[in-house]
Design a protein around this nucleic acid. Sequence first.
DNA 1: CTTTGGATCGTCT
DNA 2: GACGATCCAAAGG
Length: 196
Amino acid sequence: MARRLSRAALGADSVDVAPQLLNRLLVVGERVGRIVEVEAYGGEDDPASHAYRGATARNVSMFGKPGLLYVYFTYGMYWCANVVTGAKGDGQAVLVRALAPVAGIDAMRSARPAARHDRDLCSGPARLCTALGIDGRHDGVDLLDDASLVRLVDDGARAPAHVGVTERIGIRRAADRPWRWYVADDVNVSKLRRST
DNA sequence: CTTTGGATCGTCT
DNA sequence: GACGATCCAAAGG
């Protein structure tokens, strides 16, 4: 039984919301993935957040109401997707870092020919956007609106039995905050990579 | 399996 | 002008 998440629940702090998003579904048309890895980003109090220096043309959707999608372009090639949390104007968001493919897997394989196993389809923040077809066109859409192309859905799956916690990946500032959560033992979680 | 270097460009300094 | 909330191919074990 798919139902929307409550906007009020997403209005809490990103650090509290992030682990609650594990096992929820990200839906784009026929393509569906279960969230297995997330990271919390704060507002102007988090030096690692895009919102740290306030609202800009790039990050305005982060400052919108909770439940919006914030999509940003990075490394000249890739898109990454976030769920906006906190009160409107906070600039908080939760980065979706990995999904377990659930449906529309053939479409995901077509979108990601470089993936050699199905566990590589959505095992990274840019990978999952490519697999689901999420890009800048979807920045700012309401994930809680059934009419949106990209939606966040609660299918009633219970919280994961074991949740791992580590520092956030790929950032330089505020790198010590333990704000990454993942479903322990899920093969779709992105691999830890040495800092360079 | 692991490690390394390159790709590529919007955004902010 | 520098640097990313990254990924992938290639090369070596």
